[in-house]
Design a protein around this nucleic acid. Sequence first.
RNA 1: GUGGGUGUAGCUCAAUGGUAGAGCACUGGUCUGUGGCUCCAGCGGUUGAGGGUUCGAGUCCCUUCACUCACCCCA
Length: 421
Amino acid sequence: MKEFSSLKGFKDLLPGESERWEWVESIARTTFRAFGFSLIRTPILERTALFTRSIGETSDIVEKEMYTFKDWNGGNITLRPEGTASVVRAYLEKTSHTPILPAKFYYSGPMFRHERPQAGRLRQFHQLGAEIIGEIDPRQDVELLSLLHTFFKRLGVEGLTLELNSLGCPVCRPAYRTSLKTYLEEHLPTLCEDCQRRFMANPLRILDCKKKECRVITKKAPPPLDYLCQECSDHFKSVQKGLRKLNISFVIRPHLVRGLDYYTKTAFEITTTALGAQNAVAAGGRYDGLVAALGGPATPAIGFAIGMERLMQLVPPSPFQNLPLHLFLIPLGKMAGEYLFPVLYALRRKELRCEMGKENASLKSQMKRADRLGARFVLIVGEDEIDRGTTVLRDMATKEQINIEFTELTETILSNVGLRD
RNA sequence: GUGGGUGUAGCUCAAUGGUAGAGCACUGGUCUGUGGCUCCAGCGGUUGAGGGUUCGAGUCCCUUCACUCACCCCA
């Protein structure tokens, strides 16, 4: 058994839990559609270059977390570690000719990163994301955030905080970067080892370091907001104004940065205090440079991704867990079994959830089984019934039993049981 | 990759170094064709694995594996 156990960080989604996922996914579909997004499904495997180019050569994901293999023809392929790169690739490859901009996609599916598993972090995990490609208007930022807001509200998830920041753009970021490095350089020896390494590769990420010694220093570091160019500054103000108008609360977190290289301007995270260390339930931002970086025309875009496993921990129990049976058929003896089996088939074709017991098992044990499966009704057929040409339908809750003639069995059952969920 | 914690029945957990147990679950009976509740019985284990100390190890020591939390990273 053990030699076939599932891989570390790879989990089965089992009945009892899967019903909740289906429920969340159904809310997602109606909500995302209402906001004008269409489903896109991209392959799980992509060329490795797609991710190294989009996420960034020096990001941790690309450096040490990707599942990368050689394809049969020798090319490098990678199990996708995130969704945005593939969506942009598909947009450029297949749909950029349709001139209705912005293009609005949503996706849902597994992502893969080889990390050490812990609470809210798996090697195969699932993201639900949305992307708006081809529009720079700050209203798009607000739209996207209002979609997130609505979605979480419909799921009944409470206690979330929307954290907001702006990371600037290629016009203003270089100046900021220089100024930040100048500040950090003085304190370089007191920074943690990781941050000393980041100083060269990705100094912005030092702002996000949780270590005490670094926080003392970064607390007084200049935030990106102080260096925004006119355009970025106006954009950020418009986003905030838009959110206030929709009554969506948020906090500015000047030191919020993103781990992926492609982000510009608006960056955000939705956090909770209920998940321990992995406190980001959703995150995203603008990536106005990514489409061009992947070989397309300069095209602004914005998107987010929700961590499904993390979200599921916050979703209150839904009424859809463990779907109960409409009807359980109890045959007593071989004759009854042969009679009821086609009836089972006929009722299932009418979309009734039903199961049938074993004909040689006792009535008592079959009743017990019906009870455990949550059956609302039970249909009993034994020798007596076959002699009389009738069956017994029992309401499990009220214990009322009625006799039904063989000839009108299906119709009567359907009208009694109904198709209520 | 680095630390900490935990591994005993299907599940949740007991057992001063001295015969491996309880509750829940499961099967059956109590009730020979009527579920949940009660009571009774039954089923169930190489104590994660390997080695060592000891008359004797679930318990102490070493190794290893798994799970888990945190660092890291990120959704």
